[in-house]
Amino acid sequence: MLTAVVIQSGGTVRVELLAGGGESGEEELISPSKCLFEPETEEARTAEKISPEECGPGPSPIMPEMKELAWGAGAFVVFALLMRFFLFPRLKRGMDARYNSIREGHENADAARSSARSEVAQYEAAVASAKADAAKVVDAARATLESERQAKIAEANSRINAKREAALRDAEAARGAVRGQIESAVTDVVTSAVEAATGKRPDASAVSRAVADTMSAGVR
């Protein structure tokens, strides 16, 4: 009967097929040091020769060993401590700085918005004041122009009235002069006519009064 035995020698691993010990069925014994995995029992580890079946079965492919669990737990504890006392505080400081920067940016934006609104309100107030001042200036200019126009109209009317009165006086004087000339001429004609008709020269003053009364009655 052949038995497969895994033997580790130095840095190499080899598999040997061992034949059974004759017809009696005895197995060939090997040294515990030639086992790939250490025997599980103390008796097998201290014996000089053991059967290949007494070699250790090796680690489980599913269940980790205690030292692996210990190393994993230790690494996790170290990582947790690093996170708690070094990495997380730095991350938190960075997040706080980022948050403070964003909040400061929002506050600056709000302040700039408020300042812009205040400047817009001041600008609108200045525009309204300028419009009011311009309206006052326009009204004052209109009032000045109106007063100047009224003054010029009054001055023109005064000049027109003065010229009219002067023209009336001149016309009255001219009419008086013409009337006197007409009265004198009519008086001369009437005197000549009466003298020719009666042979006597009439009274000049009486003829003048009669002519004046007649002309006055005709003018009315």
Score class of each variant (00 low, 15 high):
72 G>T: 15
72 G>E: 15
73 A>H: 04
74 G>F: 07
75 A>F: 09
75 A>R: 10
76 F>W: 07
76 F>I: 02
78 V>L: 09
78 V>F: 08
79 F>H: 07
79 F>V: 13
80 A>M: 06
81 L>S: 05
82 L>A: 12
83 M>N: 09
83 M>I: 06
84 R>E: 09
84 R>M: 10
85 F>E: 03
85 F>D: 02
85 F>T: 04
87 L>H: 10
87 L>F: 15
88 F>T: 15
88 F>P: 00
90 R>V: 12
91 L>H: 04
92 K>S: 06
93 R>Y: 00
94 G>W: 15
95 M>W: 14
96 D>N: 08
96 D>M: 05
96 D>W: 00
96 D>F: 01
97 A>V: 03
97 A>F: 12
97 A>E: 13
98 R>P: 00
98 R>H: 10
99 Y>L: 15
99 Y>S: 11
99 Y>T: 10
100 N>A: 14
101 S>E: 11
103 R>F: 03
103 R>P: 02
103 R>M: 08
103 R>A: 11
104 E>M: 02
104 E>C: 00
104 E>T: 05
104 E>V: 00
106 H>P: 00
106 H>V: 06
108 N>S: 07
109 A>L: 11
110 D>L: 12
110 D>E: 15
110 D>H: 07
110 D>I: 08
111 A>V: 02
111 A>T: 04
112 A>E: 13
112 A>N: 12
113 R>T: 12
113 R>S: 14
113 R>L: 12
115 S>E: 15
117 R>W: 09
118 S>F: 14
118 S>N: 11
119 E>Y: 12
120 V>T: 11
121 A>R: 14
121 A>W: 12
122 Q>V: 06
122 Q>A: 14
122 Q>G: 07
123 Y>A: 14
124 E>A: 07
126 A>I: 05
126 A>T: 09
127 V>F: 04
127 V>S: 01
128 A>Y: 06
129 S>Q: 15
129 S>H: 11
130 A>N: 10
130 A>D: 04
130 A>F: 05
131 K>F: 08
131 K>A: 07
131 K>G: 00
131 K>M: 05
132 A>C: 04
133 D>T: 10
134 A>R: 07
135 A>N: 01
135 A>S: 06
135 A>W: 03
136 K>V: 08
136 K>S: 06
137 V>T: 13
137 V>N: 09
138 V>R: 13
138 V>S: 10
138 V>Y: 03
139 D>K: 07
139 D>Q: 10
140 A>R: 10
140 A>D: 07
141 A>H: 05
142 R>E: 11
145 L>I: 05
146 E>N: 11
147 S>M: 09
147 S>G: 00
148 E>Q: 10
148 E>T: 05
150 Q>K: 13
152 K>T: 02
